[in-house]
């Protein structure tokens, strides 16, 4: 167990090292950092001063070490465009993104898994057929088109729900939440549905495929031959074996939600980190791009680690170290 987790941890550290090299090279190879700081028309002296200040004349390894040291102490530098510390900017916008992802994840998982199990068990009912064909449409709908459609219908046409922003926000001191006001909930409905729909259909289809796969195994056939009830076969024998791969899906799903939050936040002008990232890319605001990269990679690494540990809990074969 310990060896397994240690190995995973080592792998995670490796991933983070690679990501830090990439974001470090962003600083060095994308645009000229001095130009980005002071503009094209600064004097030669002023430039040299900044070069010295930033340590740009030091050997590359020293610069990298300093970069990693800064990251570890939470210092991502100053945004070129907004001229504020990047870590403050991210911390300020993080709650918005995490709340959006959280609500979407709940929607996607609850509906995705239950519909997936249903269509896996009742594979020939008309409801299953309907769900399956609509899921294929769901996979084919780009997130931004869903967002535009929902805005047009519910915000522009019916005027039921707001089209942008977070609505009312309550400051808890360490966290600004919109989940404590009615207005906030009204605001999060459309973006959360938009964000969850694609992942929902993905989960649904994967759970169903997995369920069908398990239903074909010999141990299900043997359970039938012992006369066990349909309920027991479906929910005791099949579902548990289905859940093993589904855990991975949940990990990937949350990663996907974070990625697609960039698009959803843009469509709904949701004041989260994704919107900030897209704007940073537009203006080649390297410190924000680099910080976002590191931050997202860290999130993914943590999620994957949790998934690995969950695997361990669910599957005795891995727990025992044999296969």
């Amino acid at each position: 167990m310990l060896a397994f987790i240690l190995r995973r941890l080592a792998q995670s550290v490796l991933v983070m090292a690679v990501v830090s090299v990439i974001s470090f090279s962003l600083f060095n190879f994308v645009g000229d950092p001095v130009n980005n700081m002071v503009g094209q028309d600064a004097t030669r002296e002023r430039r040299a001063e900044i070069r010295l200040e930033l340590g740009l004349d030091d050997p590359i390894l020293v610069q990298y070490a300093r970069f990693v040291g800064n990251i570890l102490s939470g210092d991502f530098g100053i945004s070129y465009r907004i001229k504020q510390p990047v870590d403050d900017l991210i911390l300020e916008r993080l709650p918005a993104t995490l709340e959006l992802v959280f609500v979407s994840a709940i929607i996607a998982l609850v509906f995705g898994i239950s519909l997936g199990v249903y269509t896996g068990i009742r594979r020939d009912s008309w409801i299953s057929r309907l769900v399956l064909s609509s899921s294929l449409i769901g996979v084919s709908l780009p997130t931004f088109i869903i967002g535009i459609g929902l805005i047009y219908l519910f915000a522009v046409h019916l005027r039921w729900l707001p089209s942008s922003g977070r609505g009312g926000v309550v400051d808890l001191g360490f966290w600004k939440t919109s989940l404590l006001t009615v207005d906030g909930w009204r605001s999060i409905i459309l973006p959360a549905i938009t964000l969850s729909l694609f992942q929902l259909t993905l989960i649904l289809r994967l759970v169903r495929a997995e369920m069908l796969e398990v239903m074909r195994t010999d141990y299900i056939k043997f359970a039938r031959a012992r006369g066990l009830s349909e309920r027991s076969i479906n929910f005791v024998h099949a579902l548990r074996n289905t859940l093993v791969p589904v855990v991975t899906i949940i990990g990937l799903n949350i990663g996907g939600l974070i990625a697609f939050s960039v698009i959803t936040e843009t469509v709904f002008q949701w004041p989260g980190t994704g919107l900030m990232f897209i704007q940073a890319v537009d203006f080649v605001d390297v410190p924000i791009m680099a910080a976002y990269l590191v931050f997202v990679a860290l999130l993914f690494v943590v999620i994957n680690l949790i998934v690995d540990i969950l695997y361990f809990v669910i599957d005795p074969r891995i727990r025992m170290g044999g296969s």
């Binding site: 010999d218 548990r240 074996n241």
Partner: peptide, 12 residues
């Protein structure tokens, strides 16, 4: 059945 490797539910 023929194959004892696959006849038992691995998670029970």
């Amino acid at each position: 059945f023929q194959d004892p490797q696959t006849s038992l539910n691995p998670l029970m």
